[in-house]
Nucleic acid binder design. Sequence first.
DNA 1: CTGAAAGCGCTTACAG
DNA 2: CTGAAAGCGCTTACAG
Lengths: 320, 320
Amino acid sequence: MSNIKDIAKLAGVSITTVSRVLNNHPYVKDEKRKKVLQVIEELNYQQNVNAIHLVKGKTFMLGVILPYADHPFFQSIVGGIIQAAASNKIAVVICPTNYSQIEELKYLEMLKKKQVDGIIICSRANKWEVILPFAEYGSLVACELTEEISCAYTDHYDAFSSALNFLIEKGHKSIGYSVARIDSTSSKTRFSAYHDVLTKNNLPINESFIFSDCLDIEDGKRIVKELIRLKERPTALLVTGDGVAAGVLLQAKVEGIHVPDELSIIGFDNQPFSEALELTTIDQHLKEIGETAFDLFLHGKQQKICVPFEMVVRKTVSKL
Amino acid sequence: MSNIKDIAKLAGVSITTVSRVLNNHPYVKDEKRKKVLQVIEELNYQQNVNAIHLVKGKTFMLGVILPYADHPFFQSIVGGIIQAAASNKIAVVICPTNYSQIEELKYLEMLKKKQVDGIIICSRANKWEVILPFAEYGSLVACELTEEISCAYTDHYDAFSSALNFLIEKGHKSIGYSVARIDSTSSKTRFSAYHDVLTKNNLPINESFIFSDCLDIEDGKRIVKELIRLKERPTALLVTGDGVAAGVLLQAKVEGIHVPDELSIIGFDNQPFSEALELTTIDQHLKEIGETAFDLFLHGKQQKICVPFEMVVRKTVSKL
DNA sequence: CTGAAAGCGCTTACAG
DNA sequence: CTGAAAGCGCTTACAG
């Protein structure tokens, strides 16, 4: 590959001038500009971005930290980020941690190494106190509500309460739910909502109705298998995500449990296939969360933006 | 941020020595190594990767070209690529083209700009003749069968023929199908298979049974809406992907068409939710295609690897 | 085992 | 409008 020096020599100008035409600076005599452009064309020249990145201290790249690159929940957020990034000429590199703190830390180091200008954290393995120091080296944005940095988030308390109230209004008194990691911030928030809403309605809280580590269709099946062993069963389930809900639906059919007559289900995320499953679900507008997070990164605004959720009522909840 | 010079000064050695300990070279006196390591620790130093990339002419980054970042088909392939890349310390940047030739070209230029070491092309907008010249600047891998470069692919002719034969064995004589872009290579291949298998079985080819531009659930609904207008209808449909199939299922229910009794359906991709839909589908092992493509990139092997598909029989095909 | 020096390919004051 | 020179932060022969 030819470099800026080759161009300069062949065009009979200095590399400064070449750089100027490359960057569309004014004050280059038209004649020289044309000559330079012509040589660039002839040599099929392209700038080496690594040199530019080094000199500018910026890369126009953005890292996205998430646990699983192949989970629909994160794919939806990432979809929003990537689309927004593409229209702003920012390259996105996907950083799957599998919730390993070590891996996550390595990705955060990309900031110090000047590999990326910023990082959007979709979900994290480390505590904020270990993540925050990295904000010094670039822009950090979260997809959960947090004191410390900019974020685009769902109000999980509100969303979960709404779903709960929806079920209670339908006459359900015995409600279970599932979460992913039991000790995650959002799981704790959900438990608060669960506790508060049930207490307010004088409904008993049954811890055996809470299922953890539920991420995908197989976990959904497991929920139903565990459910049928219970002496007392919930009449409704608030499920982590639509993938899990699909598993619940599937296994319920296997076990001869009729949905929604014997078991009502509300999912989360409103994935495209949920419509085909006729699943009642809470749409958190994940794509919009991604787009908003990107915007926060791009403009370096210090803001906390709550993205509204939406209840999508279909056919998996019955009136008792 | 401190740089290698600072470290050298504080440790009382040359930058060469610092570079040596940074890169785990032998031949550094233990005492100096320790001192350097200590200063690095103190200053919380990290190498600037842009300088390294510049000097080495490599970035350990990989671009992935695809039309839509939010389509399950591509997400599955990308999932495989990212996972394989992560365990090999390669960063992946996602490049959504929306099938714009211009955009695709810009992404290919990343190779010339030394931004990435290679590119995996999941699906392309440009002709091979415009893409191939870029192979000079880095490693190019395709996810479709192609003469010119390494590839990990599905034998679409075989897969499509198998599905067709499966339906014919069940007694279907009137079979339709859908594709995404009508003039894509794989669509042409599918038409060949369709033509050949039907002809071999003395079955008529009905062009009005071919639906194009089918990508998602909405397109699936459209298929059914178009279907019911036909004087003569197919008894079975081979659908582009499971998302489209979900739409067909949904709209069939709306129109009161019973699946599979009145309409048999075979999807493609075996997405996680397909199980919940009880959809008969062809699993192309997309994740494996992604992993294989990555392997081809990493090892720079010049190979064409056919990834086997698999028919997953569930409940959307009836025996006539 | 160690370091001075050249080089990777750019950008950007600065001086004219 | 133009160019020489310094600098971005590294690696790597080369010489010792």
